[in-house]
Design a protein around this nucleic acid. Sequence first.
DNA 1: GTTAGCATGTAAGGAGTTACATGATTTT
DNA 2: AAAATCATGTAACTCCTTACATGCTAAC
Lengths: 225, 225
Amino acid sequence: MARRGEVLEFAVLGLLNESPQHGYELRKRLNAVLGSWHSISYGSLYPTLRDLVGRGLIIEDQPAPNEPGAKAGPAAPALAGRRAKIAYRLTADGKEHFQQLLGDAGPAAWEDDRFGVHFAFFSDTAADVRLRILEGRRTRLEERMATLRSGLTRTRERVDSYTLELQQHGLDGVEREVRWLSELIATEQDNRGPRDGAPTNESDQGAQRLGRSATGNRPSAPTAR
Amino acid sequence: MARRGEVLEFAVLGLLNESPQHGYELRKRLNAVLGSWHSISYGSLYPTLRDLVGRGLIIEDQPAPNEPGAKAGPAAPALAGRRAKIAYRLTADGKEHFQQLLGDAGPAAWEDDRFGVHFAFFSDTAADVRLRILEGRRTRLEERMATLRSGLTRTRERVDSYTLELQQHGLDGVEREVRWLSELIATEQDNRGPRDGAPTNESDQGAQRLGRSATGNRPSAPTAR
DNA sequence: GTTAGCATGTAAGGAGTTACATGATTTT
DNA sequence: AAAATCATGTAACTCCTTACATGCTAAC
């Protein structure tokens, strides 16, 4: 069944949940959401869209041509013609499916590849789910930190300096990630702190002031060090 | 021609350049060298080995049945039998090819995927090549930093806080990477500073004291170094 | 004498990319 | 009218993983 990439699928549903769009537009937004690292290509996007259509999660919204002539319609100005833009939007099933994905706070949500997408749609995610994902992610990274650290103390003096440097740099990176998550978690807890567990409303506050105050990194001028 | 992954191939050649090994061992070392992130599977490794054999870069060294090949193991296993371990080692061609890969300081060497492997074998790399790779890498990342920054100032206030936070975090990460590279570059230049351009010897000093002195991150004692 | 771990391999397929092919719209 | 850019799509291929299949050796 072609089982197209789950991350890509999730991201597409999320973007279409915000507003209907056509493929070309979608791709650009996608590359922003999924980070600057790996950029999705059309050869990947369009088959995914077709797959989602096939499963009834999205539908193609062909902006009504003047004459729905399948082939030979005369090109009316603006948005008619034989090869019009295809705007995709979520079906009811698609919305439901997306909400279900959003609600998933299980281990899958804090894997390396998945976490980014989940985070990208945190504004649409329930506060408690956000918190559990952040904490799960942090635990996962703390485990990795422990592994890296023991690896480092074991191999110290046994490998050359560059390898050591690389491993240390990797460890530093993970530590930085953990600090970041801890800040986010603290912010989340602060914001729901006094008000107790009751969620205020659907897309609640809490995202409004993730002030990047005393982070520790980025001390002053960014480039001119 | 099956053109197996270039990174994997490079790493295998590099490890076999250090010492002949068999596949199982190789895989573990590989996962250390390539970082904890993506771990190579046998389904990937063995075909690569076969490919390298086919191209005459490595050969299979089947240890003679009742002659143990001086295995430096916990105990001395008398290994015999029809299905013995296959130790791979570089041929003359393989050594030459690896040296050629090591000498490449071109753009390919500072791509995301390639840089790590190049760095892992820096001890075997000429000092000037090291420097050019580090500087190229830094330039690449500075470009990315600029892109991210302009993206951030453009979209600020237009996207939700979580997306912003994610983008800012990504930018911070790249900045950190650039600082790291700058330190490494400074160290490299210090070490060859007085002595001018003449390389001292094959696997020269310079890697010996990459002191992670005043890095700025890792404020206190991480492991008790 | 059976479990656990070492060791080598293969077949199928997943997740994407590149390169190509085409057409529509806007800008110069 | 040419060029650039927007827009959609396909075929072939790459690189890697999963799951399987096999057999050897050490330890309990």
